[in-house]
Design a binder for these strands. Structure first.
Lengths: 205, 205
DNA sequence: TGACAAACCGACCGGTCGGTATGGAGGATG
DNA sequence: CATCCTCCATACCGACCGGTCGGTTTGTCA
């Protein structure tokens, strides 16, 4: 006897749903919310509008779900990546590395950043977005504070203030790199950012 | 006898043209390129489509011209603002101040940033945009180098690297502030950015 | 006053947008 | 076999997009 309602293994509905989600993530990552029409997504999936509207109530709902899931992926990946490091300053470094790697290995990773910026302008994501950014702020703030305690960061810097600057800078670097080289030099720019940040944080000899 | 062709003072054509330009700048600044339809602009100006297409060949051309003129305004304002200061570190400070003030006093000022990001994604502005960003990079690079020479900035930082990071951070702060508070806390965030940057640049005691 | 061009009007075009209505294939269930 | 529900295809909708076009108004100069 199997679970009631859902037919577990061969659930083609769930497969289609995930397929739509992944396809949309890629498309949104590449061309943004307004740059992708529903017809584009439908065509890319190989399905039809009828199929789409069976699984999602609207294009906006799709985008929100894409954002939500990818955002969780991000945070999980970061958390896993940071775990091995003992010192906070190393975790901060690893965090930036992790960001680069995700952009390099998963073309749909940047859907988070794009949708975050784009949908926030239309005030459709505001609550979720606020939480998202604040989470980042706090993660980095904690890292900097810890680094200060461990003697790896100068103590005359306000942790929160520095954290918000660093996170904003990361977002800005993404925009600039996308504008200039379609993210072709993203890794290089993040390396620069890291060098600057580390120099700024480093205690005076 | 007055100038042939152009009738100097009461040139209603030129007035309409500028009116369209200003109206569009405001609209684009507030809602972005794709967020504003031609009908919106036409309605806001109080004119009609016929009038619009007499002055501009397309919506895209309008946006490009808006970007170009506003960009020049920016650079001129910055240059004027920086002139009185002798020390490079003061000019760097004044530069950030000037950015804040423009955003506060001229609602259409941020059309530069918005169109820069939005149009670059559609690769319509690429050449002009590259120049624009590179100009910023170089301005800040020169300032940092000068500050180092004057003993106001630590010398173990690469000027270009630091400059690109600072400019990117500025852009990122704009995005974040817009996303969270519709630029309501832009000044405050830039102040934070400045504090961090200055602390990072300051020579160790 | 009349000719002429610059400036402007507003209806209209083809196309695309997000979204809807309807019906049918196919497996599970009685 | 009859029935029901899930899942998807097809055809279609009204709204709106950027852009065009024939015609009208306005100002200038002979």
């Amino acid at each position: 006897m199997q679970a009631r309602g859902a037919t577990a293994a061969t659930d083609r509905g769930e497969i289609s749903r995930r397929h739509i989600l992944n396809t949309a993530a890629l498309a949104f990552a590449e061309n943004g919310y307004n740059g992708v029409s529903l017809n584009d997504i439908v065509r890319d999936t190989g399905l039809t509008k009828g199929a789409f509207y069976f699984h999602f109530p609207s294009k906006e709902a799709l985008a929100l779900e894409v954002f939500g899931t990818k955002q969780l992926d991000w945070q999980a990946a970061i958390a896993e990546r940071l775990a091995p490091y003992e010192r906070a300053i190393d975790r901060l470094n690893a965090m930036l590395d992790c960001g680069c790697e995700m952009y390099e290995t998963d073309a749909s990773a940047r859907v988070v950043g794009r949708l975050c910026v784009e949908l926030s302008r239309e005030r459709k994501l505001a609550p979720r977005l606020t939480v998202y950014l604040k989470t980042w702020f706090e993660m980095v703030t904690d890292l900097i504070r810890a680094a200060q305690d461990e003697g790896d960061a100068r103590t005359d810097l306000d942790p929160r203030l520095s954290a918000e600057t660093i996170v904003s800078a990361f977002i800005g670097v993404e925009q600039v790199s996308d504008a200039l080289t379609e993210l072709g030099d993203f890794r290089a720019r993040i390396e620069k950012l890291r060098t600057f940040v580390m120099a700024a944080l480093r205690p005076c000899p």
